[in-house]
Nucleic acid binder design. Sequence first.
DNA 1: CGTCACATTGAACCTCTTCAAGCGCCGTGG
DNA 2: CCACGGCGCTTGAAGAGGTTCAATGTGACG
Lengths: 216, 216
Amino acid sequence: MKSKRQKTRQPSRRPSSTSAAYVSAIDQISAPIPYARNEVIFSQGEPADYLYKIESGCVRAFYPLDKGSRQVLAFYLAGDIFGLGAHDRHTISSEATTPSLIRVIRRKVLMGYGGDVAMSRHLLQLTAAELRRARDHNLRLLKGAQDRVIGFLREMVQRGQTQDEIELLMSRRDIADYLGLTIETVSRTFSRLEAAAAISLPSPWRIVLRDPSALN
Amino acid sequence: MKSKRQKTRQPSRRPSSTSAAYVSAIDQISAPIPYARNEVIFSQGEPADYLYKIESGCVRAFYPLDKGSRQVLAFYLAGDIFGLGAHDRHTISSEATTPSLIRVIRRKVLMGYGGDVAMSRHLLQLTAAELRRARDHNLRLLKGAQDRVIGFLREMVQRGQTQDEIELLMSRRDIADYLGLTIETVSRTFSRLEAAAAISLPSPWRIVLRDPSALN
DNA sequence: CGTCACATTGAACCTCTTCAAGCGCCGTGG
DNA sequence: CCACGGCGCTTGAAGAGGTTCAATGTGACG
């Protein structure tokens, strides 16, 4: 079903050690596929044959827990690559939190058939970056509810495009499952931050940073 | 300084996808160095030129927080390799929790000068394994105190050699900083598990699993 | 216009933290 | 050799913070 993509390969570019060439290579050997809200991208236990790059939208990576609850490990936004960290089969699941465009790339195509050195290193760097983000998130889970929410907002600001406004592409449940809180606590904390004039919420999915310094 | 080791290569084994060849290579190009209790192995911000493999003992990897407190991200035991996940400089610190023997290996030696494909992949697998453990730990931090402690015990059993007995190579403070609890809560939880006949504590650093099924 | 999913707000409960004291081990020094 | 002092572990009681249960509010869509 996806055989014709295979032949679209890099003609004359030699593999440099920078990441730029590979990022563009990913763009060239794949087409964006639309995913609906809450649509499954891959599930725990499935063969990890593909990598994914987000064109637009947002994805949650999570462990499914018993009876519908889940622990969200990470959010991926436009430009992010995910699906790493699996040897053979995926150990986590992932779904779109909002309608998204996502590029799907076969691992084997990326690696070349024999295994390309520079691409290996690139994947290693990406995985190492994931590791650092997972560790940072560990830190966040130790603090109180307010600090977790603030940390989340700062992460969104840092990774988003805008400086003083955040477009939340995920639900309160997603945020709560990410921060290890209940949706009630998340909502209450938002309200408290608004009362403290640190932020304002024109709508539940739009957050304006009124006093960015108050988030420290 | 490392020229003569290079020729010590596996004679007739072709670079298979298993790790065995590289693990033994690590053992051959390094000698164990003794570290004292609480001795610093590397600190946040230092150049990440080396990898480390534990011969015996235990190491804590952690983020230093303000005023002496710290978040322990992982423990490394005999056989484990650590120092991964850094591009250029270490983002975490690490210290021995107990007198330990640790092999120190230059990254560049491992990688060969041009970059060895299979070794790249091996490091990628190790980093991916670290990522999975960091994510598992994330999960653990969401549960209640008793589940965190039980999860810790199960991890120690799984990674240790013995089946029904655990030799704790780290202090209560290390455990508490790892689980995001206070030392009081850790101690209380141990006592409660002992009262419930799930474990027994002949000494503070020795735990006997009396009822392994009770840890589920 | 009604329904449904999601977000917000309130009050009681529960768990973990905090503060404080007591215990046991081991090394040092008289 | 014994006494002392320090460090780490244990245990107890009060307090804070988050969860739980419950009700209300609000926007999207048929």
